[in-house]
């Protein structure tokens, strides 16, 4: 079996480009990556035909010299499937943009928890060191220290509560689907820190 080098080279380049795009955060880029890499892999499937021959028709063509039709059928199937998943990913990216103002893929919950924990632990240790280093402790300082500690604990608790709530309950669906356009959310919330606006929108509760 002979394989066209240009076909293979194109497939490799497409897969590499798609792979790099898939490593990024925004869903739209990942989508582009999926489409490009998908095309590359389809070329790979096509290249398993070997050297090209006549069109694979049933009559009027000597059977020995036709192109193998099966990889073409496989590639067609894969193309259709890619089309469908592309549509779904687009819808999901739009929905994500509607909800959070970005279409970025977020961190795993467990990862977030671990990061938060190490952060809080670090701050805690620093605080304790600072506190112990000082020889004389005024009641004022002691209260401040206690407050700081409470603040750290509250952060952990708040995160846990947020997660629990996220699982328990989620707003009113139809208002989200029908009534929510990006301008409904004040501030637009384009960066990860600047969110938390939706919940405070006063007319949402009334409509729901």
């Amino acid at each position: 079996m002979t394989v066209s080098v240009s076909l293979l080279a194109t497939a490799v380049v497409l897969c590499a480009v798609g792979g790099i795009l898939m490593l990024t955060r925004p869903l739209t880029r990942i989508l582009l990556g999926v489409v490009i890499a998908g095309n590359g892999i389809n070329l790979l499937v096509l290249s398993s035909t070997g050297s090209a021959g006549a069109a694979p028709l049933l009559y009027g063509v000597p059977l020995r010299r036709v192109t193998d039709p099966l990889p073409q059928a496989i590639a067609l199937t894969a193309l259709v499937i890619t089309l469908a998943t592309t549509a779904f990913l687009l819808a999901m990216a739009y929905r994500s943009h509607q909800l959070t103002g970005t279409d970025e893929v977020h961190d795993d919950l467990e990862d977030r928890r671990i990061v938060l924990r190490t952060e809080v632990r670090g701050e805690w240790a620093e605080l304790r060191e600072e506190y112990r280093a000082e020889p004389g402790r005024t009641p004022d300082e002691r209260t401040r220290y206690r407050e700081e500690r409470h603040r750290l604990r509250a952060r952990l608790r708040a995160d846990r509560a947020l997660q629990a709530r996220g699982r328990d309950a989620n707003g009113d669906l139809w208002h989200d689907v029908l009534g929510a356009d990006p301008e409904d959310y004040p501030g637009g919330a384009t960066t990860p820190g600047a969110t938390g606006t939706h919940g405070q929108d006063p007319d949402r509760g009334a409509a729901g």
Partner: peptide
């Protein structure tokens, strides 16, 4: 407390009406 907790803020959870 959780308004500063990043992008995972779940919409609708602070809903006054509910």
């Amino acid at each position: 407390d959780d308004t500063d907790l990043g992008p995972d803020r779940i919409p609708g959870t602070g809903d006054e009406g509910v």
